[in-house]
Write a protein that binds this DNA or RNA. Structure first.
Lengths: 123, 123
DNA sequence: CTATTATTGCAACAAAGTCGCATTAAATGA
DNA sequence: TCATTTAATGCGACTTTGTTGCAATAATAG
């Protein structure tokens, strides 16, 4: 199944390029009122499948997506930490890489880590 | 607000003591058919508030709760990794503690980390 | 320019979790 | 032991996030 370039896809991507935090569906929807709800969900999921975006679940139990800086060169190492501020709800990718050991016989496909608390701006 | 001991609460706790994986609402409900759905949600949330259980969001976007071994002594260090098998859906606490650095001026309240993949039993 | 089929919009649906409110039942203490 | 207080429960309605089927639209290859 070959992907096609569409206006909505490009608009979504543009938003991620401008923002440097992770974004939820809600946030994108509010910036693209004209695009259908389900379409945005599908675009996000496709980008995620294609490895363009990575995904973290926030404390609010929403999916946040981000175009991580370290991953833009094609290889996807998402072993970094995320932080969600409980005040401003912002989810951001932290630079710190995390290292950990994988148990014997386990196959790891994905990883996500989230710290919650108060960010320096809201403190 | 002082907590009271009830039968349902005790039953839920008993299930966690018997199991050594993290459990979702669904799993507890199936073992306690007679207890109301909303009640189980409330019990889980109260245990979480009280620091009896800790919480991780699974790949399936459900909340999993666990009575972690290392935390039973009153102090709560949940800086460990969780693993969810995409085949059997089991969520387990891994022993490995994770260490990471917290950015300047950030206040951390909680932490959760999830690896997904295939566990040794399903591989 | 045409044919193919990915993508969209729409509407209906599903699942997880929350909330208000009346009722029930722990805990306290007289 | 019994009455009082109020936390916990059951029930139903609801919200929110996300998915899916299907017909219409539009991007791409030839």
């Amino acid at each position: 199944m070959k992907r096609r370039n569409t206006k909505s896809k490009e608009q979504v991507l543009q938003i991620f390029r401008q923002e440097n935090t992770a974004l939820s569906h809600e946030m994108i929807q509010s910036k693209l009122e004209s695009v259908e709800r389900a379409t945005i969900y599908r675009i996000l999921n496709r980008f995620h499948e294609d490895g363009v975006l990575h995904k973290v679940t926030g404390e609010d139990n929403k999916q946040y997506f981000a175009l991580c800086k370290n991953c833009e060169n094609g290889q996807h190492k998402h072993h970094h930490l995320h932080f969600q501020c409980l005040t401003c709800k912002t989810v951001e990718c932290l630079e710190n890489e995390i290292t950990f050991s994988i148990p014997q016989g386990y196959q790891v496909q994905d990883f996500q880590a989230l710290m919650t608390g108060v960010c320096s701006r809201c403190a």
